[in-house]
Write a protein that binds this DNA or RNA. Structure first.
Length: 456
RNA sequence: GUGGCUGUAGCUCAGUUGGUUAGAGCAUCAGAUUGUGGUUCUGAGGGUCGCCGGUUCGAGCCCGGUCUGCCACCCCA
């Protein structure tokens, strides 16, 4: 037996009863909404083959993938290969002789893998949702974990912008049901960013530009310009980008200004039209155009979304998504475009906790506790408990005869609203005393009538 | 991955320039009084001061390492 103090890995958490209830409230709300829009559930394994994940999330992403050490590395037969593989890894390469599996990093790539494997059987457009944990070898901070949950909904096999419209509506519906009214849903289009890159010397500049402008609200225009200089952009190009970043106003004004700046570029014009289409149907006031929105993931090619928490909580992004052409092309099945969104449950939880948005109904614990007043009394009480359970009332019988104050304390600490006292006197009368601990009010109820009571 | 801050009882924290058996409040448990608790009274338990090592006659306090949480960078949910 070891005497180690129990602990859990960095950036992971246990969820106690109260927390699980609150989290379930969020999951249930999201799930219900996804299903209302016709999405179907999917689950994939926690681990994928490393090759499935590598190279899909950019250079930084690759570093954040949790790799799983192979078993049996020390087998006499394999030991030379293991050593050689280890040398490779020390040089920053991957080697399947050391790690051939890894924990999933997000839900989109495993989904793409699934679609690529099963495209022959699926009905397109295929709409699936998935709510599972993902893992990242990031350094944890508040609102940043190494294991966290994502709730994704994606549509593949359709280029219709109606999908984008619906996904934006899903954000609205979910946040509204959760009571998060102050959220903001930002929208941009990678095509507009591509057009900007084209104006600034070519597509190869796109990554540099997006990385720099993504930081605008954090470091300010001056530092962004410095960064662009370092990334080999010349004065003229930076001036163009500055003009781009200075676009302000409401959605309509923004679009007018962007049109005059990049409307001359074919792909840019297309991007603008797409946003206009979506805004024309989905008129939610919280949908705001933000040309500085870039989104890190490399695979986005069209409209991109980011849901931001109400400003006062300083939590930032609570969801995001976008359109990707040909995600499954990476797995040898080209020509399946898609678009998807994701909810960050852990951050949504923090937002709701901070703004006190969890409704009282999330507490679905025991409704009534029967006191244990002695051997005979508890037998009768148990019959009552079983009858109430059959009616769907969540109840408990105190596990042993004990002093009343002890039983009261148990009920109070577990947040049980009602107690039933069935002692010797009640036993002969065939009644029991029902007390509402929240109001202190109590009344004597015949046992036969107990099942008509509502314990809410 | 880089840099910085942090860690004392279940919880919130004290702990003076390193000096005897490390404290408080709340919580817990037991006893007293009550067929109705959370009031009162009495008492008790609980900490190898995150962990490992070093300096010192002596370390909660100084030094090194390590782990955790947090902050910035990076990146993102």
């Amino acid at each position: 037996m070891s005497k180690e103090k129990p602990s859990i890995p960095q950036g992971t958490r246990d969820f106690g009863p109260e927390v699980v209830r609150k989290r379930s409230f969020i999951f249930d709300t999201i799930k219900k909404t996804f299903e209302l829009y016709g999405f179907q559930p999917l689950e994939t394994p926690a681990m994928e083959n490393l090759a499935t994940l590598m190279g899909k999330y950019g250079e930084e992403g690759d570093k954040l993938i949790f790799k799983i050490l192979n078993n049996g590395l020390g087998e006499p037969k394999k030991i030379d290969k293991s050593r050689a593989a280890f040398e490779n890894v020390l040089q920053g390469k991957n080697d399947t002789h050391l790690t051939e599996r890894a924990l999933r990093y997000d839900l989109t790539i495993p989904f793409a893998r699934y679609v690529a494997m099963n495209h022959g059987q699926l009905v397109f457009p295929f709409k699936r949702y998935q709510m599972q944990p993902v893992w990242r070898a990031d350094r944890p901070q508040k609102g940043r974990y190494r294991e966290f949950y994502q709730c994704d909904a994606d549509v593949v096999g359709s280029t219709s912008l109606l999908n984008e419209v619906e996904l934006a509506s899903i954000y609205h519906d979910v946040f509204t049901h959760l009571g998060i009214t102050g959220y903001e849903l930002r929208i941009n289009n990678r095509k507009i960013l591509a057009a900007l890159a084209e104006l600034c010397g070519g597509q190869d500049k796109m990554t540099s530009i997006t990385i720099a402008i993504d930081k605008l609200d954090k470091i300010g225009i001056v530092k962004v310009k410095e960064e662009l200089l370092q990334r080999d952009l010349n004065e003229e190009q930076i001036t163009t980008i500055e003009k781009y970043l200075q676009i302000t106003g409401n959605n309509e004004q923004n679009l007018t200004q962007i049109r005059s700046l990049i409307g001359g570029v074919e792909i840019g014009r297309k991007g603008i039209e797409e946003i206009e289409y979506v805004l024309g149907i989905n008129t939610d006031a919280r949908l705001v155009v933000d040309f500085t929105l870039a989104r890190g993931l490399d695979y986005y090619t069209g409209i991109i979304f980011e849901a931001r928490a109400p400003k006062e909580v300083k939590i930032g992004s609570i969801g995001g998504g976008g359109r990707y052409d040909d995600l499954t092309g990476l797995f040898g099945v080209p020509g399946i475009p898609g678009v998807g969104i994701s909810f960050g449950v852990d951050r949504i939880y923090d937002v709701m906790e901070e703004l006190k948005l969890f409704p009282a109904e999330v507490h679905t614990g025991t409704q009534i506790l029967f006191f244990n007043m002695g051997e005979q009394e508890s037998r009768t009480a148990y019959k009552q408990v079983q009858q109430l359970r059959a009616k769907g009332v969540r109840c408990e019988l105190f596990h042993e005869p004990a002093k009343m104050d002890k039983q009261f304390k148990y009920a109070e600490r577990k947040g049980i609203p009602f107690v039933a006292i069935l002692g010797s006197q009640e036993l002969t009368e065939e009644t029991c005393v029902v007390k509402d601990l929240r109001t202190g009010r109590q009344e004597r109820v015949p046992l036969a009538e107990l099942i008509f009571y509502s314990f809410i």
